[in-house]
Every structure is written in C-alpha cells, then in structure tokens.
Write a protein that binds this DNA or RNA. Sequence first.
DNA 1: ATTATTGCAAAAGTTTTGCATGCCG
DNA 2: CGGCATGCAAAACTTTTGCAATAAT
Lengths: 128, 128
Amino acid sequence: MVKYSRQRECILRNLQSRKDHPTADMVYESVRCEEPNISLGTVYRNLSLLSETGQILKISTGNGPDHFDGFTHPHTHFICKRCGNVLDLEGFSATNPIDQASVHFDGRIDDYELKFFGSCAECLSIKK
Amino acid sequence: MVKYSRQRECILRNLQSRKDHPTADMVYESVRCEEPNISLGTVYRNLSLLSETGQILKISTGNGPDHFDGFTHPHTHFICKRCGNVLDLEGFSATNPIDQASVHFDGRIDDYELKFFGSCAECLSIKK
DNA sequence: ATTATTGCAAAAGTTTTGCATGCCG
DNA sequence: CGGCATGCAAAACTTTTGCAATAAT
C-alpha cells in the first residue's frame, strides 16, 4: 500500500514542471529548495516508484546516469553523444509499434522506447 | 592509432559467433577458455573500443549491466523486465527512421535504437 | 497502532583508470 | 625503439539497502 509523502509529491511536481530530462542528482539538487532535508536515497526510491507506476519515464542513455521525464505520453528522445543531453524529438511516428512488433513474438510486449543518437545543434556549433 | 591485439580479436570473434546478447562479464567468462589471462578491464576496454568503431552494439537495458551484440545490422531488441534477457525481435520495421526524424531536428542524427519491453515467453510460462 | 517512508551512511554493482610491463608496427 | 594494449588492483560512479526514527492512515 502506497502512502502519501510530501517528498514524493515534490519530486513528481518538479519533474512535471520542467521540460528537460534531469538525472536523479539534478532532481535532488532541484527539490532541495523546497525540501532541504531530503536525501538522495529518497529521490532514488521515489523515482523508481514513480517510474514503476508509470507516472514518469526512466531514460537510460547508455552513458552515465539515467535521466527522467515527467511527460509520459509516448514520444521519442534524442541523446547527444557529445554532451549527453536528452532532448524531445518531434517528427517521428510509428503506427502501433507494439501491435506491429507483437505479431511475431510469443512473449508479451508492454512498452517500447525509441531513441536517436547523434550530436545536438549546440555541440555541432562548437566543433564540426 | 589502433594496434592489433589477440585479446580484442578474440572478444570480437566471440561476440560475432554467438546469437545471445552477453554482458561484459559474460564475455569475460566466455573468452577465458582461449585467453586464460585476460582481465575484465581489458574486456571492458575492448568492448568500448569496438562499439565506438561500430563493430559491435552496446545495449543498455535500463536495469543492471549493459549487453553487447556482435550483429550490427539495424534491428530491434526485446528486453524482458522480469529476467532481464535481451532478445532479437523480428517483425518490426520502420522506413528510414533517421531521415524521418531528422526533418524537424537541427542536430545531426547518426543512429537510432528501438527497444521493446515486457515479459518473455519463458517468464510468462512460470507465472502469469 | 500499524506500516510505509525518510534520512543517513554503508554497501553493492558496474565501469573506469593508474601504473608498470609486454607486445605490435 | 616508440607507443598502444594488457593485467592487476584501486578508484570512481551510480544506485540500492539496512536501520532507527518519523509520518501517514
């Protein structure tokens, strides 16, 4: 049974109010204004809980810590291999990818994740 | 300048000859028959190098260690959230996803990764 | 009152790195 | 030879966990 906690509330609101894709540590630093005594362990515990219940998304970039997203509507991410930044990516849509992929698969598919990798505009401008 | 190494050769051949998606540690255990003195550090160093040069793929599952794939032709993976296994997934194809995604993006997209999550057939059979 | 959640700190797990030595070109 | 790669072990980094105290129902 999940009980209310001020800390979890704060973490969720923080994540929903921002448009970037922070790491656990960035969330920790950010919520310390409102919750000065919160611990990093609590942030990790709640980020896990929230992503298990589908209230947030966990994004593993393949390099460094995981990132989190308060916007859970299916969408695509871009990960910059130079600076590690995670951005939303518009303009790609697959129609019913889960149905499509399930046809020839005998397990059960619940979710999918589409990520693109490359160099973000900012990194390109620094050094071609 | 990259120099030949017996160890790297062995790691690459190992990865290309198997159809599963082993972790660094699994590769380490596996190549020790041929290379009894190889160290885990060397395995990590070479897996990094090989994936940077595009000779293998690195697959981060979002839980536990990364997995690696010796088959680099673009294809889709399924990750079981119960046992953590990584499987190849047939039956999904997107046409030119990179071109499609690049239209509305001002960075440069080099690569993409499509992953599905759920429960594999084996795990489903154990407990619904 | 009962049980989930917290803060803290220690531990676990994965990956990277410094260094002396060995091997490739 | 000169420099990249190795083996080893220590360190770094991210995430999880045990525990006593606190807060929610």
